[in-house]
Nucleic acid binder design. Sequence first.
DNA 1: AAAACGGGGGC
DNA 2: GCCCCAGTTTT
Length: 191
Amino acid sequence: MADTSGDPFRVLIACILSLRTQDTTTGPAAARLFAVAATPETMRRLPAARIAKLIYPVGFYRTKARVILGICRDLLERFGGRVPDTIDDLLTLNGVGRKTANLVVTMGFGKPGICVDTHVHRISNRLGYVRTRTPEETEMALRARLPRRFWIGYNDLLVAFGQNVCAPISPKCSTCPVRAICRRVGVTSFR
DNA sequence: AAAACGGGGGC
DNA sequence: GCCCCAGTTTT
């Protein structure tokens, strides 16, 4: 992800940028945006078209510009210009779902959390680690297993594994470190 | 050229 | 539960 320096607002915005897009272009896009505006107050004054141009070419750039402005307005009107630090409060922001809320809580506020993207959801089931139907169910199941003391990095590990090894298409089973405990070595179409 | 891919909202 | 949102990446 982009360098967000532990600033919850930057984490939040970077999360929005990375929704439903491959995460290679979002870092530079976030950097360009933050160079112009890095707080709800300043970002809110940017026209949507300006934001859209700054964050291009991330997918959904027009939609995301609108969402970002809505979030800035909400933060200012309902949260005193601060990013809330609980899942429940975060979920009241339009454009923020469970994945984003968890990411803000963990990366922005340094609290334990589980962010379940489709990678995490997929590999957890593919490996037989859990048996869940929705990402939310996976989140709850993984939360129960979150290491108490060494939880930092746990989530990143899952995501990285899902991106680089246990990929949705052409998973690298031949070099997979957990090949021995996987029930679906060589299965390429599991979702 | 075509299909796969990824969160969230509205219904 | 189903459909929509727009663009990049993979096949």
